[in-house]
Design a protein around this nucleic acid. Structure first.
Lengths: 190, 190
DNA sequence: TGAAAAACGGAGGCACCCTCCGTATAGTAA
DNA sequence: TTACTATACGGAGGGTGCCTCCGTTTTTCA
């Protein structure tokens, strides 16, 4: 029963919310889960008060970033249909995953807070979309003789996260992960 | 080449170091990995400067606590030889593990820093002692008809950590884990 | 166009971090 | 025992981040 008699949200509020999420993705990605929220606000070009009005807790902000990332991953997955080179298409998607994990690196504690049973369900739809999109790409690649048969979207997801989380964080992490990823991708070729 | 011409360490320094580790175990256990180090110092009854002199970084303190815990677990494991009731002996040891994990709860990030290849090797001796002690208890229990045959010390260790880390942290965590643990222990009976 | 709802910004009070250095004390040699 | 000095102690202080609160500004809508 939402009240139909309501002003629409102010445009500046929407814009600032957007900027905050963008800034958070950047700052939290570089500084880890304990990065300064004041730095996020500054980078977004808003006051600290505005940040707290939009996201009352650190978790709320994490959650928003995660949601955004997941939406991005869905979009990217769905854009792969246009790509004729299915190997490169998969590489593109897998690399996007690495970037996202990088943002979350070290914030596993926060993630476990976010990932309650309820919210997992809330994200189920997104995961299903991703799975479906990858399925299409794989089928296409196998049919075109570019990809070997016999692996699933879930195989991809599990592998990418295993690679990401098995490596020690720190300098060179990204390079290391991307290198291993390329090896894995070569293994996917027909 | 350590200099043999050295004063022995001052007694107050040793005492304070001890107190700090004890306090850290308590405070970090309750407050998680971001708990205030000043609170640790206060609880230990020393100045904050003293804490930092003994443990220059948060990790150094974690490390000391972990070392201590591991030593405790070795001692407990070796004390089990005296116990005629092998089921209760194992329960005692498993519960000690839960307490230790509880201290570390949420500080997985810190642990992954501690657990480099080098330090893992450094702790190998302790793990070997634990394994040996548990082996003796299990053998004794099986021979006495108290325990079922066919499980190893490593089975115990893996199970206890799986139980501990699979449960969501938060209030009631300990109760939940202990309950599951008791069920598991009943399964070990002959 | 003007009133009121909505949103903004940042000062302020508090907690914590870590360093630095004057003071206290345990160990040692005479 | 005493006196010397290496060693260790404590906590003030300067810096940063957290979060709240409220006077000011902006946007919406009639």
């Amino acid at each position: 029963m939402s009240d139909p008699q309501k002003r629409k949200p102010r445009s500046d509020a929407l814009k600032n919310r957007e900027r905050l999420i963008e800034a958070a993705k950047d700052v939290l990605g570089k500084g880890g889960p304990n990065a300064s929220l004041e730095a996020v606000a500054k980078q977004a070009g808003v006051g600290i008060g505005t940040l707290y009005r939009h996201f009352p807790t650190r978790e709320a902000l994490f959650n928003a970033v995660f949601s955004r990332d997941l939406t991005d991953l869905v979009e990217i997955a769905e854009s792969l249909d246009a790509d004729d080179d299915t190997v490169e298409a998969l590489r593109r998607w897998l690399r996007s995953n690495v970037s996202m994990v990088e943002t979350k690196r070290g914030m596993l504690g926060a993630l476990s807070v976010i990932m309650t049973e309820d919210s997992r369900k809330a994200y189920d739809a997104e995961f299903a979309l991703i799975r479906a999109a990858l399925d299409r790409v794989i089928a296409r690649g196998v049919a075109a003789g570019q990809l070997r048969p016999g692996f699933s979207p879930d195989d991809l997801m599990q592998t990418i996260y295993a690679i990401c989380y098995a490596r020690q964080p720190g300098p060179g992490w990204r390079e290391n992960v991307l290198r291993l990823l390329d090896i894995f991708i070569d293994g996917l070729r027909a």
